[in-house]
Structures are given as C-alpha cells and as structure tokens.
Amino acid sequence: MTKVTLTVNGRTVSGDCEDRTLLVHFIREKLGLTGTHVGCDTTQCGACVIHMDGCSVKSCSILAVQASGSTITTIEGLAGQGELHPVQAAFKEHHGLQCGFCTPGMVMTAVDMINREGGKLTEEKVRAGLEGNICRCTGYHNIVKAILAADAEMASGRQAAE
C-alpha cells in the first residue's frame, strides 16, 4: 500500500492504494467520484478523461501513485455546485448526450480542446480531436454541434471581456 495525495476539484485528498491501482479506480472507489467512467481496458474509449495539471488525461492509463502530487479536475469539479460549465450547457442545449456514459469524458475532452484551440475550432478539427473518445449513442453529430457552439459562445465571452 502506498499513500497518494492529490488536489481534486480544489480539495486536498489522500488515501492508501495498491501500487497497481489505476488513477480512475482511485478516483471512483477511494474518492467516491463516480462521474469518471471506465469503458474499456485498452485506453481507447475516453470515458475516463480527467484534467491533470490542466491537461486532459485518460485516467485509466496512469497509476494513482504516478499522479500523486498533481492537481486534478473531474467532471464533478468542472463547474460550481448546481451550475453548468458552458460546455456542459451546450451538450444539454444541443442534445449531445443520450445514455450519459461517455459524457463526462467527452465534456472533459471538449473543454481541453477549447482551452487549447478556443475560437479556432472547425467541424473537422473537433472530429479529429474526438479521436480518443467513443460514443455509441449519438453518432457524434450533436456532440460536434455542442462543442462548436460552446467554442463560439466562450470565444464571444472572451471578446466581450477584452
């Protein structure tokens, strides 16, 4: 057992885990944050995407002990209590989710995409950027629409702020 200490959604948390424990299992089972999902065992589906030190990471592809000391945001911490981040709001508005299982990973990937390329996203870029996230329900049509809408909205928000 090794002690792991992380800052998760703004709070410092620590817990013991086996060396082989994946970060996603630590988040789900030790921290009880079950919004981060496991959809595969080969790092293909993206249901487990979180942000680690500001970048999107598949939390099934990293050990909890490797993540020790880092700052993590999960889907539960993306917006304030009872609020929706603009990307979450756009997914609702454009029906970018059905069963909701891929959704946390999709949203975290989308936020990262907008953080990196905000204002410059195109349908093609969004589709390419979703390469590591699989959705079986939506055919991606409305996910792409939602991400482009959120990007436009966030870009106009930035402009207004400038």
């Binding site: 079950t34 919004g35 999902h37 539960e76 993306l78 979450q88 609702k92 989710l97 909701g100 299982f101």
Partner: peptide, 16 residues
C-alpha cells in the same frame, strides 16, 4: 424540450 435527465449526467451524478 431539452432533457430533464441531462444535468445529472453532465455533472457526473449519474448512478450506474
């Protein structure tokens, strides 16, 4: 109508 169930899925509060 946008979906009533979306908020819990979007905020990681789904219960699978």
């Amino acid at each position: 109508v946008t979906r009533k169930e979306d908020k819990r899925f979007l905020t990681g509060k789904g219960r699978y």
